[in-house]
Design a protein around this nucleic acid. Structure first.
Lengths: 210, 210, 210, 210
DNA sequence: AATGAATGAGCGTTCATTCAT
DNA sequence: TATGAATGAACGCTCATTCAT
């Protein structure tokens, strides 16, 4: 029962496709509720209700609340990581341009697409311990996407940091905090925020004035 | 029952002093449990047990769990804000030196003194809505401590930012994220981390190389 | 839908034979799970899984869990009763020899062949009331097999009892208790246990020393 | 929180006495429901209802259903064992008289006083594994009460058995089965049944006629 | 005949809150 | 002031049963 594997919409049979579609629906609803209420105020009844299902039906797809939430985080995490990886591996442009692109992808993901994603990185104390382990790999991949570009920048002399890890952590902390303070009124606001925030954060890596 | 007012150890009568001392004990225990377990895994039984009290007794001092936690956050928040304010108002030294000092105070507070404080700023989704409002004032004060110095720096030309608010938010996000990734093994580690982190974050405000 | 009738492998048509074979498979699997887990820990999913079926498919053969379990008990009960009856009706040998044979058949059935059978007689309180009634006939037949021989023994003076019913109940209680305490390590152990237990229980009927 | 210790009605303070009395009430109600419905059909709501309590209130006295049931079995088991021990240690009379007394005590306990006690020894498969371990000590004590007298009888030549363990197991099996088949109509019936059953079972140990 | 999906009813457990003493 | 007792509301989870395909 591989419900926790990231879902592949291309199942062979009709039945599997139906099931996968349903799993996707459930993951989407779960992501929504998580985003609105947070983990502890997310209960299975609410998720089920949004899907016009009963709580018990969710257990046909996921064996527990924790597995459901984990699957949800892994699913969204994978989506984000894929975008980041694709962006990171594009070696055109300066390190600054590439890092800016990464920051924009990340901000777009956690602010607009999947507001709850930030939680994945913030790792609140009162989430079940299991999540930390289950999403370790995701966080590692995520980190690597950024480190790849940053190390390229350092190697080429375009970036200068006192301590790489510290700088990267500060970058992540600052990015993941954005959903807390940013509220868009118009669509244009997102773009402006991405621009300004990326410019600000780039300074963590660009050499300072003497 | 103005339990949410910050407690003043100097009450007029003997009885009130006794009560205030007890309230302080409760707040301390609450802060400890919050720091260890996080909000949702913090239950009144555990707080009471640490105080050799019963759950019911807590209700003589705080009318609800939310009030208790709020009072706790306000108490700790006040302590931090006071330290920050004192630091911010000391106008000796360059803006960089003063901002560095602020960052060190903040990191020391949320990493070493009151690990749960960071939650106050991260505002997890699944905390009761009320906290956000109740701690608004605290966050404003806190923000102002930093803004005071940063504006001085900008005014004097020592600091240069594209957007002040964005830079400040990034600073806060990065600082509050530190408890998530930093683990000290020796006492000395704190000092080193303060140093490196402050140096890193200062770049958000120092003029970049052309 | 006479699923509770004992299944006769010789159905007229091909289709019925197929069906009857399937019913037998289901009963066998049910008996296994009942024996391993006991009634309340037996769920339809587990039975279905062992048959490479789904829970829903079981409902094509039995209208409810209770009917399935009842049918299972009746099936196994019939098997045991048939063996007992055949043994009881063989009038060769002394009453002691014939009773010993019955005891061995019964022990062999409930300890080795169908460990769950004992439950049929122990009638645990928390089984649905219906079982008691549905298996009444079986218990009666079962009882009669033993009574036949015992009465013969009493009539011939070989057996002497204060109260026949009491002695028979004691016999049953003692036999059905064997699965609780007996654990075989080698095949030979069964034989030894049959021997010793039968010898012990025979005393309930043999005339005591004066 | 020693709720599982056998309750001592003599607590020092008034509060403790009140609590112990309540614990006893709960154990009694639990024993009743267990006796009527069996373990799996016993739910906390029913126990609570009989006590004019809510399910949640039970958790002030016992941390889980399993602990409650275990405590109940241990409580009743202790009562029976104490009676048995006292009877066994009285060395007056012949071994037959002493064993008869033990059998009467046991029958009285499981048929009249605590009908559910028999379950303790029958160890149904579908009870949680934990019970088997938790009540091991009780069963051992129980067994020893009988063995003491039986060994005395064997030593003095009054009893003769092929295999002591087998005989004792048969005795237990037969005794614990009594609640299944015996229904008293008048008070006198108990006495008659004790008499007849004890006489019958004694044969397991008395030397058989040659 | 077979099954995936769905569900209702039920259960054990947790916990903030209330109240009489 | 302190507390033991009690509780209602909620939640995660299980499972026999039903039904459309």
């Amino acid at each position: 029962m591989s419900t926790v594997e990231v879902v592949d919409e291309e199942g062979p049979g009709r039945v599997e496709r139906r099931r996968n579609r349903k799993v996707l629906d459930i993951l989407t609803a779960t992501a929504d509720v998580l985003a609105e209420r947070g983990y502890h105020q997310t209960n299975l009844d609410e998720i089920a209700e949004r899907l016009d299902l009963t709580k018990a039906s969710l257990y046909h797809y996921f064996p527990s609340k924790d597995e459901l939430v984990t699957a949800c985080l892994e699913w969204v995490g994978k989506l984000v990581n894929d975008r980041l990886m694709a962006t990171a591996q594009n070696r055109e442009g300066t390190a600054s341009e590439r890092l800016t692109a990464l920051i924009r992808v990340q901000l777009d993901s956690i602010v607009r697409e999947h507001p709850q994603m930030a939680q994945l990185f913030l790792q609140p104390l009162d989430w079940p311990e299991s999540y930390r382990e289950r999403t370790k790999e995701l966080r590692k991949e995520h980190d690597e996407a950024f480190r790849t570009v940053i190390r390229d920048g350092i190697a080429s002399g375009e970036f200068v940091v006192e301590d790489e890890s510290t700088a990267v952590h500060c970058l992540h902390g600052a990015m993941n905090y954005v959903p807390v303070w940013f509220r868009a009124k118009r669509k244009k606001d997102y773009e402006t925020m991405y621009e300004t925030t990326a410019a600000s954060l780039l300074r963590l890596f660009r050499p300072p004035a003497p």
